Computed example of a mutant assay.
Amino acid sequence: MGVNIMNQTLETIYQHVSVRSFTEEKLTQNEIKELVTAAQSAATASYQQSYSIIGITDDKIKSKIAEYAGNQPFIKESPELFIFIADLHRNKEMSKRLGIDVSRAIENVDATIVGAVDASIAAQNMVIAAESMGLGTCYIGGVRDGIEEISKLLEIPNDAYPVFGLVIGHPDQRNDLKPRIPFDGIYTTNKYFKDESKIIDDYNEETRSYYQNRSGRKSNRTWADTSIKSIEKHPRDYMKRFLNKRGLAKY
Rank of each mutant, 00 (worst) to 15 (best):
H16N: 03
Q15K: 14
L166D: 08
G99Q: 07
E196G: 08
R236S: 10
I121T: 07
I121H: 10
R20G: 12
S46Y: 11
I231M: 14
K218L: 03
G142T: 03
D87H: 00
S52L: 00
C138P: 00
I140N: 02
I113H: 00
H16W: 02
I200H: 08
E77D: 15
M126S: 12
Y210E: 03
N220T: 10
F84C: 07
K194R: 07
S151R: 04
A224L: 14
T37Q: 09
Q72H: 13
G146M: 07
T12D: 05
S230H: 13
D225I: 04
I32F: 05
S120Q: 06
A69P: 10
E31A: 12
K64Q: 15
D201L: 08
A86E: 02
D202N: 14
G141M: 01
L88N: 14
E107R: 04
F164C: 05
I5M: 15
A249Y: 00
G185A: 10
K229R: 13
E25R: 14
S209V: 11
H89M: 01
T189S: 13
T189R: 12
S209F: 13
K33W: 03
L81W: 00
G216A: 05
Y51N: 01
S120H: 04
Q40V: 00
Y161G: 04
S21N: 11
N125A: 14
G142M: 06
P171Q: 05
E148N: 13
D87V: 01
P235T: 09
K233F: 03
N108Q: 01
F84E: 01
E25S: 13
T9K: 06
Y47A: 11
K178Q: 09
E93N: 08
A122D: 09
T23Q: 04
E77R: 11
T189F: 12
A86L: 03
A224T: 15
F183R: 12
A129S: 14
L153R: 05
V102C: 01
I32L: 12
Y192M: 09
D202L: 03
K191I: 06
D110Y: 02
Y139C: 06
T44P: 10
K233M: 05
I5Q: 13
G136P: 12
I186N: 07
I13P: 03
S95T: 03
